[in-house]
Amino acid sequence: MTTEWLDKLPIFGASIARNFFSPDTLESRFFTLMVFMHIAVPLIALVILWVHLQRVTKPRINPPRGLAIGVLVALLTLSLVHPATSQGPADLAKVPAAVGLDWFYLPLYPLLDRWPGPVTWGASGALLLILLAMPWLPPMRKPAAAVVDLANCNGCTRCFNDCPYSAIIMGNRTDGRPFERQAIVNPALCVGCGICAGSCPTSTPFRTASDLIPGIDLPDHSISALRDAVLAATTPLQGKSRILVFGCEHGSSISNLPPGTSSVSLRCIGQLPPSFIDFVLSKNLADGVVLVGCSENSGHARFGIRWTQARLARARDPHLRARVPAERLRVVWAGRDGRTKLDSALRDFTHDLDQLLAPPSRAVAERMAKLEEFIRD
Rank of each mutant, 00 (worst) to 15 (best):
L46I: 06
E180R: 15
I130F: 07
T2D: 07
T157M: 09
P178L: 14
N297F: 12
T174V: 11
P201H: 09
F104V: 15
W50S: 04
S262Y: 01
V290D: 01
S298M: 12
D228I: 07
G247R: 00
L128G: 11
Q271A: 11
D24E: 14
G198P: 03
S295R: 03
P236G: 06
S262A: 15
D91S: 10
A146L: 04
K370Y: 08
L131S: 08
E327H: 14
P139Y: 05
I195V: 14
V324P: 03
A363E: 14
R114E: 05
Q309G: 10
F36T: 13
A93M: 01
M368G: 12
R29H: 12
A326C: 08
P138V: 09
P258C: 14
P274G: 09
C156I: 12
L266M: 04
G215A: 06
D175H: 06
V148S: 03
C294W: 01
T57F: 04
V292Q: 01
L371S: 12
R336N: 04
S79T: 10
P187F: 00
P214L: 04
C153Q: 03
A345I: 10
V264L: 08
L76P: 02
W50P: 00
I277W: 03
L101A: 06
F20M: 10
F160D: 02
G70W: 04
T25S: 15
P10A: 09
R141Y: 00
T174K: 11
L231I: 15
D102A: 09
L244E: 01
M368R: 15
A133Y: 04
V99D: 08
A197R: 02
A315Q: 15
P219F: 01
S124V: 13
A286Q: 03
